[in-house]
Structure formats: C-alpha cells, structure tokens
Design a protein around this nucleic acid. Sequence first.
DNA 1: TTCATGCTTCGATGGTAGCCGAAGCATTGC
DNA 2: GCAATGCTTCGGCTACCATCGAAGCATGAA
Lengths: 224, 224
Amino acid sequence: MIASLVGDPARANMLTALMNGRALTASELAQEAGITPQTASSHLSKLEAGGLVEPEKQGRHRYYRLTDDDVAGVLEGLAGLAARTGHMRVRTGPKDPALRRARICYDHLAGDLGVQMLDTMRTRNLVRQKKQDIELTTEGERFLAKHLQISPDMLTHPRRPVCKACLDWSERRHHLAGTLGAAMMQRFAELKWAARDATPGSRVVNFTRTGEKQFAALFGGEKD
Amino acid sequence: MIASLVGDPARANMLTALMNGRALTASELAQEAGITPQTASSHLSKLEAGGLVEPEKQGRHRYYRLTDDDVAGVLEGLAGLAARTGHMRVRTGPKDPALRRARICYDHLAGDLGVQMLDTMRTRNLVRQKKQDIELTTEGERFLAKHLQISPDMLTHPRRPVCKACLDWSERRHHLAGTLGAAMMQRFAELKWAARDATPGSRVVNFTRTGEKQFAALFGGEKD
DNA sequence: TTCATGCTTCGATGGTAGCCGAAGCATTGC
DNA sequence: GCAATGCTTCGGCTACCATCGAAGCATGAA
C-alpha cells in the first residue's frame, strides 16, 4: 500500500524535504529525517519500490527526487487534509518562500498566487464554486477570451473536468485545477509572465516583473 | 499523520468500501475489512478523529461515510499512484437485486424505489429536508390528498414524527420514514400497487404492473 | 596499491499497534 | 419487565517494522 509508505514519520519527513522538487542525497535525507544512514537507506529502497522517488547515481552519491508531479500532487493533497484537521506533523508547509508564493501542482498554479487567483475569480463571478465543484460562468468565459485568449472549446477533455478545486498544500485553501487551471498556467508561460524555475525538477514558478504586474491587474486583491 | 491512517490494510479496505459515496454500518465495514467488530470500532474511531469519515447514528446502527469530496479526491490520487505501480485492490458488487429495488424497512418503503420517491418529493417541493429532519410542505399536503387520499390528521402520533429521513440499506441514501412513510406504503398495498413477497420472512416488496406504472407517474424520474 | 567516503546489507533489539475474547452500554423488539 | 442486536471499552497477546551497530561493496583520491 502506497499510503503506508507515506505514513511512516521518517519517510514523511524525507518526502516533505523533497517537495520543493530538488534532488537530495541519501545522507542529506537521513539528516533531514533525523535517522542514521542505514535506516534511511532501508526507507529509500522502499520508497523507490513504491514508485514515489527515483534515484540518480552521481559519483559516490545517490540523489533522490520525487518521481513526478503526480506524486507531489498527492502529497500536497494529504498535507491539505492533515492541515485542516490540525493533525499535521512537524512541518506546516514549504519553508522555501518562493515555493509558498507560486509553484506547479500537477500542471496548474498553486501557492499564494494560485489561491488568490481562484479567490478573485470567485468574488468577481467568473466561476461559481459549490464545494469541490467549480463551474465557469458566461462572464468568466468572456473574461478568459478577452484577457487570456482562452476559448471554452480549448478546454474540453474526455475524462478531465474543466474546473476543479484542488486543496493547496501551503495555503490550506483551494486553488484552481482542471483543464482550465492547466490552460491558464500554460498561457502565463506563453505570455512570458511566469516560468518554471530552471533548476531541474524544481516546482517553483518565477513571475517576471511585468508578469507579476499583469497578473495583479487581473487577479490582484484590493491590497498591495 | 493522515497517511498512516490510510496506510493500514484494514482501514484502507474500509475506506475503499466507502469510496462509492454511500454510508456503511460499522459491522459491514468490519466484514469488508475481514476483521472483528471490536477491531473495526477501534479503526473507525481513529478514522473519525483524523477527519476522514463521519458517523451518523440511526437506531442501533452507526453509519459511516467519507467526510467530503476532498477526502475522496485524495484517496483517488493514492489509488492512482498505487495503480501505476501495480498495487491494485478489488471492488465488491451488489447482492439480491429484488431486495435492492424495493423492500420493507420497518413499515415503510426502502430500496431503489424508496430513495427515488423521496428524491422526487424533494425536487418537487412536496417536502423540505434539512439533514435528518423532513417537513411536509402545503404543496405536499395537497399532493397527498389528491393522489393518495392521505390527509394530515391521519398522520399524527404521540411518539412518532410524521416525516423522518431513514438511511437506506442498499442505496446508502435517505428514504422516507415516519408515519407518512408508513401511511404511503400502506396505501400502495391497499391500492394493490405493491405487496410484500409471500416468502415467509422476506422483506422484498413486489410491485404489480399497473402499480409500477402509477408509482412512476407520481414519483418517476425523467428516465424510464 | 591503500585509504577515505558514501551507501547498502545483515542481524538483533525493542516499541508500537493491530488483533481478538470478554464484558459493558445503548437501542430495539417482545 | 427481559432478551437480542449492534457497537464500544478493556486487557492481554502477538507480529511487525523501524532502528541501530557492525560489516560489506562500491567509487574516487592519494
């Protein structure tokens, strides 16, 4: 069972340390989890067998990273559930401030800016949210076409919903997933408003100066 | 840690059994997980403390359901990860089809048709439901008098409520109980729309051809 | 070659948590 | 009233698994 892998405190600490997308050596992960290298080795081989992490040999070192964004997404979901029941473990979220601000969750925008975006879209009636279900309003369609050149027919997919609420790891509130969430993130990249961090495997999303300005103009709150 | 809750095989089996959105009793979940009721009780209290499931008391039974869609979503994600590394599990299917369709619950109609009836009554504003409490609207009173010759004064009882939501055994959704539920079932029998199965001890309710038609005319959905 | 570093495997230990039998409440039915 | 059913609590037993020390492989540097 996958969940039992994540359930162990030592392994959970390791996985949390890997949540920023960077690869860490076995020793570093051991220290991160507060255990000896031989114990860490045992854990890491189990995580690898479960498909949660992938090793990369480099000289005498073995670097481990999360397998892909799906794994990160599930971990994020678990952290979200843990957070809302106050059942969380030591770490309350990413300590990296850049990661808290904006990051990739599967293929859409998460973090402070992701939550803020959905908030604004909701208050401006671009979407209507009922629990986990979100639907795009006609006002929202007009908005997307006008400002982001996104039309509804670009968003249809046989198995995936257009809009979906996704629990945010660091903010503990919902951000926007689904084909729309993915399309908007892609558009931000195309417009050179933002780009995934160059560091291999990093989930950080860096906004450019002008990108941040444009984003704030569309989705910024009253503050700032 | 939330993940460790899901990680235990017995608890994972329980949660998987709840994934269809229906509620199950503690004993049923015990059987589903292949453990004794006292062990299941321990597991369920932990799941409840972790905010993964919510109980609903009904008579001697305790029905458990997943807290909300966020929980189900995370479980889906975990199952997805498990599936791609080949750690799948199996699902269970329904049993007696006749019993699922229509049966007696105490003295009122249960099963697929019972749930359907309450659904329709709710959407047509014949009743208003708030959680477990149901109240008859004036529209509902008119409807009952016109189509089933049931008047409100037939329904008063010192200890029993007129309307009550009763969790359905097979559908795991609410059907209508209380003196109204009983009166309607009785009326169906008097009109020869339906009758309890002749088999001694059987709880199956058989609808006649015309009875099914009349019932569908009053409470049928769009389909059929 | 020889040594040092990084990681893994082996073996033994101990704490934790799942498990069940028996008894205790609560609700319903007679 | 009493019995039956459903669920919980309590106490003890057992099995599993995380943990670490020590030894075994690798790789890289001298």
